[in-house]
Design a protein around this nucleic acid. Structure first.
Lengths: 89, 89, 89, 89
DNA sequence: TTAAGCGATAGTTTCC
DNA sequence: GGAAACTATCGCTTAA
């Protein structure tokens, strides 16, 4: 009966994953509903989607900019204050 | 100042969508974490993913089977009891 | 001997694809070589890659901006000159 | 004005890389077109892709087999006559 | 209503 | 081994 434990563990993992995937799907559906609602009020969902996409891109780009700035600072040996790679030693 | 309303509405839609997309992403990350955790305990994530996929497939098939059965029953004028398309009104 | 044609066609498709994939691989190798060369001259490839990535993102974002502008113009019924959906008929 | 050189070098690297990445993308698009064309003629692209993948695998395996054979021959002090990397000309 | 194009996401592979 | 790039698959949206 040694594998019973593994079996239960496995089952637990799967159930956690499936639970979360359901939640994810529910949220995706909610998003779809909002687009439908907006469309119902006369908005062009195509434009709306593009706006959302561009805003996401902006965020992403900003994050990359900051990442490269950190990279530069590191390269110059002058990282900004809390930029410790690892000095908890 | 007539467009102020539309503007606010639009902004509200976008914010609702972005909020939900963040949640969705958070959940996706949670799922990834679980796979990582399972991997850390020696499970093969490739297999694990496959299991999850197959189970989803199964659910899907079962749902289809039931849909077909309902179709038959309807065609025969003998829908099973709670066969309301939509009475949540 | 009717399937001979299909066979030849299939073979032709596969050969064209394989030829192109070889070219693609060759180019990917060239790119790798350049990074190696840059590294050999003291450049941090991590930074270099990030620069390239950001520049690509910029291009992408610009393209999206233009796409949404076109969308707006269309919505307003005032597409810029060569904005024919399709009048080559 | 000492950094002008580094700057130019860096710029040159980036441009070379970007140029190659464009070419790579163009080829990738060509490949996609071929799949689309094949699909238009009734071929199942999923199967087609699998064929290509398997053939690549085969090439890889064959190359390994030959490498092993060469290893053996070398170990025995009897490398096959023309030990050129490429004399299929 | 369905096909097809497109965008997003998930999975695989590769590099560090 | 972990992160990043690339690929393939999937699902949505849209247009015929």
């Amino acid at each position: 009966m040694a594998d019973g434990v593994a079996r239960d563990q496995l089952r637990a993992f799967i159930e956690r994953i499936e639970r979360l995937e359901e939640e994810k799907k529910a949220i995706a559906d909610d998003i779809k509903d909002i687009y439908a609602e907006a469309k119902g009020m006369g908005y062009d969902t195509k434009v709306l989607r593009q706006v959302v996409r561009i805003r996401k891109q902006d965020q992403h780009e900003r994050a990359e900019q900051e990442a490269i700035l950190d990279l530069y600072l590191h390269a110059l040996g002058m990282a900004s204050a809390p930029m410790n790679d690892n000095d908890d030693a």
